[in-house]
């Protein structure tokens, strides 16, 4: 029961969780019937999916002896850009949808 084993366990669990959410995002992309419903799926993959995998990678490389913090940069970048691209895709899909009442 060493720390190494514990960290190994944690990073394995993080990989499983991240992969699970990425997969669920893609399943939703195929399964759901309407564009606005489907649009909610990749936000899952980009937040928890990639986030968990990146944290697992940080732990893994730190265990190997080389502290690696690049992953923070990637996850920060994705967290900043994901809302922007989602927003633009909604705008592209809706353009001026007359079905939405203006306030």
């Amino acid at each position: 029961m060493t720390t190494t084993f514990l960290l190994d366990l944690v990073s394995s669990a993080l990989v499983i969780v991240g992969v699970f959410f990425t997969l669920v995002g893609s399943i939703g992309l195929v399964k759901l019937s309407d564009f606005m419903k489907r649009l909610h799926c990749p936000t899952k993959a980009s937040t928890l999916g990639v986030g968990c995998v990146l944290i697992a990678s940080m732990i893994d490389f730190s265990l190997a002896g080389e502290t690696s913090l690049h992953e923070l940069l990637i996850s920060l970048f994705i967290f900043i850009t994901a809302p922007v691209s989602a927003h633009l895709m909604v705008k592209a899909a809706l353009r001026d949808d007359p079905n939405i009442p203006r306030p």
Partner: peptide, 14 residues
């Protein structure tokens, strides 16, 4: 708007 989109289930769209 970014926070609303980052939490899955809600999307800020306009």
């Amino acid at each position: 708007a970014g926070i609303i989109t980052l939490t899955p289930g809600t999307l800020s769209s306009d």
